[in-house]
Computed example of a mutant assay.
Amino acid sequence: MNRSQGITVLGATGSIGVNTLDVVACHPGRYHVVALTAHRQVDKLFAQCLQFRPLLAVVADASAASQLQQRLRDAACPTEVAYGEAALEVAATLPEADMVMAAIVGAAGLRPTLAAARLGKRILLANKESLVVAGELFMRTVRDSGAELLPVDSEHNALFQALPAAYDGNLDRNGIEQLILTASGGPFRQRDAASLRHVTPDDACNHPNWVMGRKISVDSATLMNKGLEVIEAHWLFNAPADRIDVVVHPQSVIHSMVRYKDGSVLAQLGSPDMRTPIAYAMGWPERIAAPVKALDFLALSGLTFEAPDLQRFPCLRLAFDALRAGGAASAVLNAANEIAVEAFLQQRIAFLDIPNLVERALQTQDLSACHELEALLQRDADTRRQVQAWVAA
């Protein structure tokens, strides 16, 4: 590697963004930061700008932008500041950026990630909603532009590592029987169904293994996160729903597995630390160092597996249903879930209301296919309005 590679981090103040910058800091001669984006965490973004000196920083609105710009000027930091959705697309398409870490949570990350894909950049995909909402459109854009798409979710990164190096999207031609995603089971794996009626947002965000943002932590608690990952795996690896399986693995040591037709199963193992898949995606096809604690096999008490309980956690079933339904079903599923999770975090609905609202949306919204971005985003907006109305009723 002769030239320092530029990276834009979409969602720099979230857990994936912070971990990405940790990896960048370990390789100062290999990578440099071109742009950082955040929502409204001005203090955190300000500190990141001082450390990494990006060309551009993007925040959500004019007020946050004004505050950040003044603080950067006072600190003699040359970073320019912009705000709004259009500025996110600018950050994702700067010519100085060789790669884009797509780590904005939710459908909000779709437009800038798609913009980077159109330009043929290396996309480090942590925003699973880009594929859940617009899988057909996104994958078509990647193929047409020649962009490199590398999965950062630990499960899909593990599958990528366990698949043949020259995997061409054909399971049978590569002797593959099944893709197996592992799930920790979340904080309520051993809770009885009746007790789930009374769990709080803090309970749901207290994940036993991973340190994540509040939205994805709730998704982990409902198993919707695993459902979204099933849909993502379908698009990434061209796998139908009946060739994707989910097993609960509470220790979070095996991150996913590939079962081959000869009886072999290849698994990727490691400590539950997102800096491993981030470093793998950043350095691919090389492997680069990451500040991750080595997995100590002698310290492991055991590796256990169990089937997911679809009665207590119906969100996983709903995600499989949406994948099989096709059309805009996955976009509706995601939009309904985002509004329901937000309402739960605001303590406006109960935990068990989340799958009920998602299922109601799938039963009532238009699930017909949308082939263009604006039509998909309109379907997303319509679903959000309807679920918001149900929450308010």
Rank of each mutant, 00 (worst) to 15 (best):
N225I: 14
R379A: 15
R111H: 12
P250V: 07
P28V: 15
A82E: 15
G29M: 04
L373H: 05
A12Q: 11
G109F: 03
T113I: 06
Y260V: 13
G84N: 13
P285G: 06
R71I: 15
R30Q: 14
V341A: 09
L159H: 03
A86H: 10
D353P: 00
K293S: 11
G84W: 04
G283I: 01
L333Q: 06
N334P: 05
L10M: 12
Q178C: 09
E338S: 14
V90I: 13
A115Q: 07
G270D: 05
Q48W: 06
L10C: 09
G175F: 00
V341R: 08
R73D: 14
A336I: 05
K293G: 07
R30L: 15
V247E: 07
D245T: 14
V152W: 09
D382E: 15
A35F: 08
N157K: 02
T383P: 12
N2K: 11
Q190R: 12
G6F: 04
L72P: 03
D366T: 01
N170M: 02
A329K: 05
L236K: 07
A193M: 06
S63G: 13
H207W: 01
G227Y: 11
T364I: 07
S63V: 14
Y167L: 07
C26G: 13
R348H: 09
D203I: 03
V42A: 08
V142Q: 01
N238T: 11
V132W: 00
L55Q: 15
H39D: 06
G283T: 01
V391F: 08
P54S: 06
L179T: 04
A389Q: 14
K121V: 11
D168W: 01
D153L: 08
A102C: 14
C77Q: 10
G185E: 13
L333A: 00
G227H: 04
G120W: 02
L21M: 08
D273T: 09
V292N: 12
Q251T: 11
D382M: 13
A375P: 00
Q251K: 00
A329P: 06
I349T: 03
A221Q: 08
L171M: 14
G169D: 04
G283S: 06
L362I: 07
I123Y: 01
P285R: 10
A375H: 06
N206L: 08
F313R: 11
D61T: 12
S63I: 06
A290G: 02
V292P: 04
S368C: 10
T113V: 09
N206Y: 00
G135I: 09
V248A: 12
I216Q: 13
Q347A: 14
Q51V: 03
H249Q: 09
L163S: 10
D309M: 06
S264I: 01
V34M: 11
V58W: 06
A102I: 05
A86N: 11
V332T: 14
E177Y: 00
M274C: 04
R312K: 15
A103P: 12
D273M: 11
T79G: 04
D74C: 12
P95H: 08
R287Q: 14
I244H: 04
G263N: 12
A393T: 13
G120V: 07
V247S: 14
H371V: 13
M257Q: 10
V247A: 15
V100P: 05
L223V: 07
